[in-house]
Design a protein around this nucleic acid. Structure first.
Lengths: 212, 212
DNA sequence: GTCTCGATGTATCGGACCGATACATCGCAC
DNA sequence: GTGCGATGTATCGGTCCGATACATCGAGAC
């Protein structure tokens, strides 16, 4: 999942680790806590070894300063490669069971702007199915096994059941929107129209400038 | 977290691994997917090595009502030890940051029937604080950084924000209930007892430390 | 009779991810 | 000039997961 998220973010702009973590936190804040450096840096290393990202020079090519003085450990800026973009497209399109669990779905959803509509629909429906099954499991427990459980456990199940029902309704709305060709609830300029033009970057308009 | 859940369940009844997993799934179904055997068996081993659980004989000498018609071999039944009960009490009472994340809070909550009221209140308030902070983070992103994010990501944040607000309200109710001395929201019909004899969880040892 | 099949049951392995920790630089307030 | 919080890279041990393997048992198929 981290791999997918990193490749997705680096398509918007090259970044160094610290910045990546902040952007990740902002983008995925709804579904998971801040990513750990103990996951991030090893993953960056792995992606680099696989050739999906490369180090980009932090300072421009003007070799005016060669800091031998303080051995300044500069930031390491990563950018995505062509192979990395292919890898991202591959990861975003394929859907296994892990695509529908909480974290997996969240990450996929966060990059729906870079996902074609057919895949979006498939993922939303798979997620709905997953949550419906969880909901049925909770209903079973609340119905059949209620007397075996204490009041607190039951209350936990009830709260979980409520969350499931709510999410199913949310997914229904999103699915209806997808089918009608609209963007998510609040319409977005630019995504409508067009053919199967996947991978059209959203209107980021951001130029992340590095100021050393 | 697994350690806590296993010790908690084994206090209700001795069980073997497979059964433990099923009970775990039933009790924690609202907060996490089924536990993996790749976690369960090594953890059982660890708990046994620490002296908190022991292997119990599958077929006791006193065959009260169920004679060993089918001599099942190979099952390893675990039961909790006195040290294990102490360990459980220790784990249930101490609250670190991991007590307030989704999984940690869920597991603690699932064993609230074995937790004293002061601790319950402390955990509920800590969880509320955590969710309030998450909520503020989402509001920040939706307010300050909205233009940097695409419509899908924003929709994800909105859904997450809604879930946070809902959970805070739920927690408020539970906290009010705790302070008023009542059980969780639905007062629980008579604990007339289930089909299993040894499943009598109730004695939480309520101290009447009420706070105005 | 036996044969396959799904549920029950125990177990291991590689990998993903986390939490704690360490260490170094920078800007700024005091 | 000094402390201090934000920035920044990095590793280590540990928890947990997903895939896999393997063995037994009851029941229905043939």
């Amino acid at each position: 999942m981290l791999e997918l998220a990193i490749l997705g973010l680096l398509q918007e702009s090259p970044m160094h680790g610290y910045e990546l973590r902040k952007e990740l936190t902002a983008k995925l804040g709804a579904i998971r806590a801040a990513i750990s450096y103990g996951s991030l840096y090893p993953t960056l290393r792995r992606l680099q070894a696989a050739g999906w990202i490369t180090e980009a020079a932090e300072t421009p090519a003007t070799a005016e300063e060669v800091p031998a003085l303080t051995s300044r450990r500069g930031r390491v800026v990563y950018k995505i490669t062509a192979e990395g973009k292919e890898r991202f497209a591959e990861l975003i399109a394929q859907a296994g069971p892990e695509t529908y669990d909480d974290t997996g779905f969240g990450v996929h959803f966060a990059f729906f702007a870079r996902t074609d509509q057919a895949t979006r629909l498939r993922i939303l429906e798979g997620r709905r199915r997953t949550i419906e099954e969880r909901r049925e499991g909770l209903r079973d427990v609340l119905g059949r096994a209620a007397e075996r459980l204490d009041a607190y456990t039951l209350e936990l199940q009830r709260h979980g059941l409520d969350a499931c029902e709510r999410e199913v309704r949310w997914l229904e709305e999103l699915i209806a929107n997808e089918r009608s060709g609209r963007a998510p609830t609040v319409p977005q300029p630019g995504t409508a129209g067009g053919r199967r033009d996947n991978n059209s970057p959203p209107p980021p308009g951001e130029s992340r400038t590095e100021r050393p």
